[in-house]
Simulated scan of single mutants.
Amino acid sequence: MPLILISGYPSSGKTFRSTQLVDFFARKISQSPDPKVQRLKVHHINDQTLGLARDVYASARPEKDARAAFTSAIKRHLTRDVLLVADGMNYIKGFRYQLYCEAKAVQTPNCVVHVGTPVEKCRELNDAALESQTGGYEVDVFENLVFRYEEPNGMSRWDAPLFTVPFDDAHPPYDAIWDALVGSDGKGKVVRANAATVLKPAAEKDYLYELEKTTSEVVAAITTWLQDHPGEAGGQVFPAESRELCVYLPATAPSLPQLQRLRRQFTALNRQHALNKSRIRELFVDYLNDTFQK
C-alpha cells in the first residue's frame, strides 16, 4: 500500500505531523467495516527508529549512508498491506524521485506531505531544542540543510499528489490523503510499473556507456542552442533529428553547471534500471522538462 513521504525544513514538526497521520490512519483502519481496509497496517520510520543521530548531516559521507539506510528500510516495509509513513526531511529532489521509483516499482501509490513551517519558526524551535538539550541540529548543520532544501512541487510527478500542512493548521488534510491513496473501497489508486521505474540490474550491452553518451548529447544540444540564442527567454530545443522530442527551457536559462548536475542526478538514479537504450533520450528529456516546470 501507499508510501507517504514527509518533507520539510529541519525542526519543522515533521515527526509531530507524522504521529498525527499514523494515529489518523490507525483510527480509519479500526473503524472500517471493509475487510480489505482492516488488513492494513501502519508503519512509521524516521531517523530515530533507524538509530541515526542528527550529526550524520554534518558531512557528506555519513549523510549518504543515512539516506541509504532510509531507502533500505522503505524497501523492506513497502508491501501491499502497509501504509508506510517515511518521516524525514527528504529535502533532495533527486532522492524523492528515487523513492517515487521504488513505490512505482512495487505498483503502489505515493504522495508527499510538505510540513510548511516558515524557516524563522523552524530556527526558533531548533534553538529552543538545543538550549533545553532535547534535540535540535547544530546551528551550522541547520543553516546548511535549510540552504540546500529543495521544496516539493506538485507539478512534478514524483511530488504528486502534494499535500501542504501549514505550521498552525489545526485541521490537516488527512482525509484527503486517505482518499487519494486508499480510497473508499480500500483498493486505492491502481499503479502500473513501467520501464522508467522498474528497478532491475542493467542488462543491455553497453548500457552505462549509452546512458552517459545520450544524456551528454542532450546537454550539448541545449548548450549549443543557448549559445546561438543569447538573451532569449525560454525556448524549445530538439535534441534529436526526428524533432519528436522537445526540451522546454525555463525563462531563466540554465547554466552549464546546472545542466551537468541534472545529468548526473539522472544517470545516478538510472544506473541500475533495465531501461531500453532507445528510451534513454526520451526519459532524460522528460526528467528535464519536469524539473524546468518549477
Rank of each mutant, 00 (worst) to 15 (best):
I6R: 04
G8V: 00
S11T: 02
G13L: 04
S18R: 02
F24D: 07
K28H: 12
I29K: 02
S30G: 02
S32P: 10
P33C: 07
D34C: 04
Q38C: 08
L40T: 01
H43C: 11
H44G: 06
D47S: 06
A53C: 07
D55K: 09
A60C: 14
K64Q: 15
K64Y: 15
D65Q: 15
D65W: 13
R76W: 10
T79C: 10
R80S: 05
R80C: 06
D81W: 14
D81A: 11
M89P: 11
N90W: 00
I92H: 02
K93W: 14
C101S: 14
C101T: 13
E102P: 06
A103P: 05
K104T: 11
K104G: 11
V106Y: 00
Q107L: 07
N110E: 11
H114W: 15
H114Q: 14
V115R: 00
T117Q: 01
P118L: 06
V119F: 02
E120R: 08
E120H: 04
K121F: 09
R123S: 08
L125W: 15
N126T: 01
N126E: 03
E131R: 13
Q133F: 09
T134V: 11
G136W: 02
Y137P: 02
D140H: 09
Y149Q: 06
P152V: 14
N153F: 01
M155W: 10
R157V: 12
D159V: 00
D159Q: 01
A160G: 09
L162Y: 01
F163G: 02
F167D: 11
D168L: 09
D168F: 10
A170N: 05
I177N: 00
I177S: 05
W178S: 01
W178T: 05
R192S: 11
A193Y: 05
A193W: 01
N194I: 06
A195D: 12
A196C: 06
V198Y: 01
P201D: 10
E204G: 09
E204C: 06
K205N: 05
K205A: 10
D206C: 07
D206G: 03
V218I: 04
V219I: 15
A220W: 07
A220P: 13
W225F: 08
Q227D: 09
P230H: 03
G231S: 02
A240P: 10
A240C: 11
Y248R: 11
L249T: 01
T252G: 06
T252W: 04
T252R: 12
T252F: 08
P257L: 09
P257D: 05
Q260L: 14
Q260T: 05
L262A: 05
L262Y: 12
L262D: 09
Q265R: 12
T267W: 00
T267C: 07
N270Y: 13
L275C: 06
L275S: 10
L275F: 00
N276P: 10
K277I: 14
S278W: 05
R281H: 07
R281V: 01
L283H: 12
D286L: 13
D286Q: 13
D286P: 09
D290Q: 15
D290R: 13
F292E: 03
F292Y: 07
K294V: 12
K294D: 14
